[in-house]
Amino acid sequence: MFFLSNPLFFFSVALCDAPQAWQFGFQDPASPIAQGIQDLHNDICFFMIVVLVFVVWMLLRTLWHFHWTKNPVPSKIIHGTFLEIVWTITPSFILMIIAVPSFALLYSMDEIVDPSLTLKVIGHQWYWTYEYSDYSLSDDGSIVFDSYMIPEDDLELGQLRLLEVDNRVVLPVHTHIRIIITAADVLHSWAVPALGVKCDAVPGRLNQTSVFLKREGVFYGQCSEICGANHGFMPIVVEGVQLDDYLHWVSNKLEDI
């Protein structure tokens, strides 16, 4: 009965998992981390607006009350110990309040919850290679494929320009997934906004991050570290599917090896 508790079930809502023209906000979160990042952003925006209103109010008040027509003799006060203590303590107190949820989120992003599968992502100039090696009994029995962008001329109606790839990464929903990210030549960065993942791919380093998909969908991302001439043409597409479908996809892929 999970679907009944989901408010989206009652409305036909198309969730936004790809960038849109003139977009200002976030894409719809598809993982708890992405949800956490967006919630933290919104919470911090509350403090930002309070501070902004206060500072603007002070500035306008000063301009109004100390205009030369009303206040011909300039004030000669150059020190105010109490005032200085207040305007030092208050901002640091606000920063400390913001730091609490910020650090909680930061450390929860590093947390690896007993993963059920590992995806290896390898950045190349200029495409991504994906490896699934959980099911192989020999060194050359892994599921390995390259993921290239579909050029503009080959796009079909409804496909997204500069975002579509020939081979998508297929991942199951409601499963703890470990992602190992590295590069074979220069720096790259594997980023999928809807999943709240952005991790640098560094040659010689195996960066680990984790992801937990809350729902099915096709999530789009792009290389996020300048990596050469075709940096803008190596997008990322993650397809979140039900666990059974994922297992079928894996067994089909294993048969092809």
């Binding site: 007993d114 599968l117 590992t118 959980d134 499963t175 470990r178 297992l247 067994s251």
Partner: peptide, 13 residues
């Protein structure tokens, strides 16, 4: 059983 042959298991933490 064919589908179940793919075991959902990886290197533990």
């Amino acid at each position: 059983p064919e589908a179940a042959a793919v075991e959902l298991k990886t290197t533990p933490f």
